[in-house]
Nucleic acid binder design. Structure first.
Length: 260
DNA sequence: ATGGCATGACAATCATGA
């Protein structure tokens, strides 16, 4: 049986819970990484997800951030060896959770936005990614079958940006951020989306304003990087834009990868 | 040049996002 993993920044799990449940009902993916749940742990909808057939591990907080890994009980059971946050990077912000599922080390990250190039938040973003990189080196040595899924808040290449000229040097597309992305790839990871022929103007995020989605004005900032061992098993990677068409959507679309 | 839109805390605006 193939194994499917997905990542989706839901921009509030409270608001998007029904969208998520509907999506799980039609897609039945085995592992789902969520970002921006914006829920403290005592408010996480464990029971409703269990009724939908999914077990959850999560780390969250009020108002901002928050990440989770859902596992389909019937196919992959419960996640083990759960790690919340980067061990050597003290941080109040809940941006990372890792767990082992079906022999795969699944890392779910909500990378900092960075706000504006040169700001304190931009500096924090680069330091956060550097700390992730350092920690991942050890994780990869321990777990050769590793996937890093999430909202990276980085568009790696020109073709990942609807208007690269306009975005040049801006946050999400600045050279230091793109270099940080390449430094993750240099650990021996593969951008699964680019293993395959993809449609023109493939993006995962569109601004709520200016009718950006309808006008295909987006960025590809949500990614699934796979270790070499997993890349060898990968048969597909797609962006599902359908949830972005719904009423009151998340501004991000899910990305799905299939492993053989 | 600016704000457009959305979410959440908090109770009219404000912080944050990307």
């Amino acid at each position: 049986m193939p194994l499917t993993l997905a990542t989706w920044n839901v921009n509030s799990l409270k608001v998007r819970l029904q969208h998520l449940l509907d999506w799980l009902g039609t897609h039945a993916v085995d592992v789902v990484c969520l970002q921006e749940t914006k829920l403290p742990d005592d408010r996480f909808p464990v029971d409703l997800l269990q009724q939908a057939g999914y077990e959850s591990v999560f780390t969250g907080q009020k108002t901002y951030n928050g990440v989770a890994i859902l596992t389909r009980r019937a196919t992959v059971g419960v996640a083990t060896d759960v790690q919340a946050n980067l061990p050597d990077f003290p941080d109040e912000q809940k941006r990372l959770i890792a767990a082992t599922v079906a022999g795969v080390r699944v890392v779910c990250g909500y990378f900092p936005n960075g706000q504006a190039v040169g700001s304190d938040k931009y500096d924090y973003k680069l330091r956060w990614i550097a700390a992730l990189n350092e920690w991942l080196r050890g994780e990869l040595a321990r777990s050769p079958q590793l996937a890093l899924l999430g909202d990276y808040n980085v568009a790696p290449e020109d073709r990942d940006v609807h208007d690269p000229k306009a975005w040049e040097g801006q946050v999400l597309f600045s050279e230091p951020e793109r270099q940080a992305f390449r430094d993750l790839v240099a650990l021996g990871l593969v951008d699964s989306f680019r293993l395959f022929e993809q449609p023109e103007r493939s993006y995962t995020w569109w601004d709520y304003r200016m009718l950006a989605f309808r006008r295909k004005m987006g960025l590809r900032i949500d990614h699934i990087l796979l270790s070499q061992a997993l890349a060898a098993r990968c048969t597909a990677c797609t962006i599902d834009v359908e949830p972005r068409r719904l009423e009151q959507p998340s501004d991000h679309a899910p990305v799905i990868v299939t492993l053989q």
